[in-house]
Every structure is written in C-alpha cells, then in structure tokens.
Design a binder for these strands. Structure first.
Lengths: 230, 230
DNA sequence: TCTTTTATGTACCTTGGGGTTAATTTGTCA
DNA sequence: TGACAAATTAACCCCAAGGTACATAAAAGA
C-alpha cells in the first residue's frame, strides 16, 4: 500500500524511522545487558541511551522511569526463559527418562541464561519487589511445575516413584544447584579454585546430581555415576 | 557532663571519646547492614553516617572511600562466618555422623547469616572483584574444606564412603542448596508460593537433603526420610 | 488540506550523594 | 609546657545522572 520503495526512489520518503516497536526492542535489549551487569541502582540511563540507536528521551517516553524500564527488562527475561521451558516436551518419555531430561534441561538452561540469573539475583537483593508488582510473571511459572507434576503423577501411578515425592520440592532442588552453579561461580572460584568449572567436571557434576535426585525419587534406582573416580 | 556517670569522675580525662577502635566498629556495623540491604551502588554514605554515632568524615578517615568501606564489610562477614565454622568440631564423631553434622550446620549457618548471604550475592554481581582483592579471605576458606577432607578420608579408610567421593564437590553441593534456600527465597516465594518456607517444611527439607547427600556418599546407606509423606 | 495524535530530537534543569577543606580538640612524648 | 601526631567536627564542593520542557516531524484521521 504505502508507496513501493522500489520505484524511482525519488521520493526519499523516510528521513526518519518511525518504528516504535523496533525502538522499544532496541532499548530493552541494551537495558537488559546494563541492568544485568550493574544492577538497578548501578545501571546508568545515559549509558543505556548512548548504546541504543535512539535517545534518552525515548526511554522515558516508552518506559516512564528507570524502575519502569527495569521492570520491563525483568519481565522480558522471565518470559524468554519460560518460553524455552515450554518448548521442552517430556510427555512422550517414560517417567524416569522424563525426570532426568527435566533436570538436565534446567541445569543447561541456567548455564546458558546468564542475564536471567543475574537479574534474578538482583531482584532478590530487592526482595522481589518488582517481581511482585508484575502481572505477567506469575502466570508464566505454572508451566514447569505442571510438567513436573505430570511426571510425578505418572511415576507414582506405575509404582516407580516414591509416594513422598513432591513436584514443588523437586523443582526447588533442581533450581538450587542449577542456579547456584552460575550465580556463585565468581565467589566460589575465588575461594576454592576453578576445578569444578572445567567442562569435564561440569558434565560429571551434572551426572552425579541427576543420579542423586533420581535415587531419592525412584524406587530401586541404581546410580551409575557414584562409583566413578573424581 | 558525660564523664561523671557515678564515680567521682576525678579522672574525667575525656570530654570527647577518642576511641578509634569503637568508632571503626560502629561504622562497620552500620555499613554492613546498609551494604547488605542496598548493594554497593545502592548504599548511601550519608545514610550510613547518619546512623552511626560519628560523622561522614570519619568514614573517609578510616576507610578511604566507599569501596574501601565495602571491602572492609565484606572481609568482616567472611571472617565472622568462618569463625563460626571453626567452632564446629566433628573430629570426635564417626564419619557418617560427622558428615551429617557438617551438612546440617552449613544449612543452619546460612539461614542465620542473612547479611553474609546478601553480601556474597552482591559480590557475585560484581564478579567477586573485591573478594579477589582481599588478602585475608583466601586464608579463611581452608577450614571447612579441611574438615570435609578429614571426614572423607576417615570414611574411605573404614570402607564406609565410596571411592569417588570428593570433599570440594561435597562442599559445593551442600553450599548450593543452603545458599539458594536463603538467597532466592524472595523470588521463589513470589513465583511458587511460600509452602516450602514453613518451619516444618524447612526441617523436613533439610532431612531429605541430608539423606540425599549421605545416600550418594555412604555405601549401603538407608535413608529414613524418603518414605515420609510430604 | 487541516487537525490531531504519535514519535522523536535537543537542550536543559535539579539534586542527591560521594568526596574534600580547613580548622579544632585530644593525647603523647621530649 | 610546648610541639607534634592522631582524632574529630562542620561546612562546603561539584558533577554525574535521573528526569523534564519544548519544539517539531511523521502518520492518521476526517
């Protein structure tokens, strides 16, 4: 409909952009990195503006103030991570394989989502004040729990899983080591050395963790990794 | 006026205080709370000064600048936690009981040291930059590893522990859930509810965690908690 | 084609807060 | 007892950074 840019080009239509959505995305993208790197108070609006292809004025135009921008960033990373979780399909796997898969996927997801980890750390420093305000985030979190509950129910139904197994507790446990592995890498390495963070050790660690969780869930499970030397 | 305080006050040398160590401690005490609450960039020197019984000038006199104060605070909380670890004596316990005790103590220590947790979170946001600069912290961290290594060695010597058991990995594992339990409480509760944080659930959780770790370490271990209902 | 709304650029304002200057009091030691 | 160092006070500086005013170009109506 709008004059095809192909013809003649003599019109020189757009000296400007006028692409609100792209501008919004651009700002959010840069802001995500800055807030993840420096925290809420540490991030600098001027610096964010400088790195975008637009101006500081537009940040305030679209997001109101610094906190509004932070909140949008937070919701963005949550949505991204949960979308990845939704893509994971374990309904077709038998319970033990499904649980193993969920644990491994969670571990890997944390390793490959450093922005998310850092923003959650920052949000915890702020006592989840902005997460609580969010209207979209609570809805996002059902998915992973639903999957775990489904797997647990199936595992119990066929007598493979112990009766005391609880999906929420399993998620807590899986999250704990997956999160800590990334979030505290800097201080742990500084205090105790980097031995655990080599690729080989990380892979071995994950195997042991999976075996450990499965042993606590699956009746008569035989862990393979426990006898391997370090 | 202040000097008299009862006893004749014939000495009454001090109309002032002139007690550098007390002033230092006072500043550090308040600063610890402020940095733990708001982070490095979020903390406010004027606010810290206001809460102390001294002035802002003294903060700069004793600690140079904001980063110097932060560094001192960081070293303080590390020293406090490690001192608590030193107090723990498991040399007299047989290996399994000793390991159980170490895990439980670590878990409890994290719960009761929220300032430490928050400052470590903050330090990780800063990529452990200040921890690395510290000259005292690296020395502090041997103690807990030494204890674990001793227990592991004893356990292996009597054929109770698996050969693949590694003290550093055990410490990592124990720290991971102990730390996460406190550090991510705010976001986890917001996302998934507070069910896991009741006193009863926390106690049950710890028992399950201990059993889980022990099962992965001790040959033929029989976990008691796995069959209990949630 | 006139008006209204949306989107954008430039320049500016304000203040919070990290850091400093300079003088004053207390203690110590010849 | 006087000089010198250590500890402390109060007032001040100043600029980085969050936020705003105002003008205006582009789209959308009408």
């Amino acid at each position: 409909m709008d004059a095809s840019e192909g013809d003649a080009g003599h019109k020189r239509k757009t000296s400007w952009k006028k692409d609100p959505e792209a501008v919004r995305r651009d700002i959010l993208h840069i802001a995500t990195q800055e807030f993840a790197a420096h925290g809420l108070s540490g991030a600098n609006i001027n610096e964010i503006a400088r790195q975008t292809s637009t101006s500081k004025r537009m940040i305030y135009y679209y997001f109101g103030d610094k906190e509004g921008l932070y909140q949008a960033v937070l919701e963005g990373v949550y949505a991204t991570l949960r979308a990845r979780e939704d893509d994971l399909d374990v309904a077709g796997l038998e319970p033990v394989a499904a649980l193993r898969r969920l644990i491994e996927a969670t571990f890997e997801a944390h390793v490959t989502a450093p922005h998310f980890i850092r923003l959650v750390m920052i949000e915890n420093i702020h006592n989840a004040e902005y997460l609580r305000k969010s209207e979209i985030v609570p809805r996002l979190n059902r998915s992973i729990i639903d999957k775990l509950e489904d797997v647990c129910a199936r595992g119990k139904a066929v007598g493979l899983f112990r009766a005391g197994v609880d999906a929420l507790e399993l998620h807590w446990l899986t999250s704990s080591f997956s999160f800590y592995n990334v979030s505290n890498r800097a201080t742990f390495s500084t205090s105790f050395g980097t031995a655990l963070y080599s690729e080989a050790r990380q892979a071995a660690l994950l195997e042991r963790l999976v075996d450990m969780v499965l042993a606590s869930v699956v009746i008569g499970y035989e862990p393979q990794s426990w006898n391997a030397p370090v």
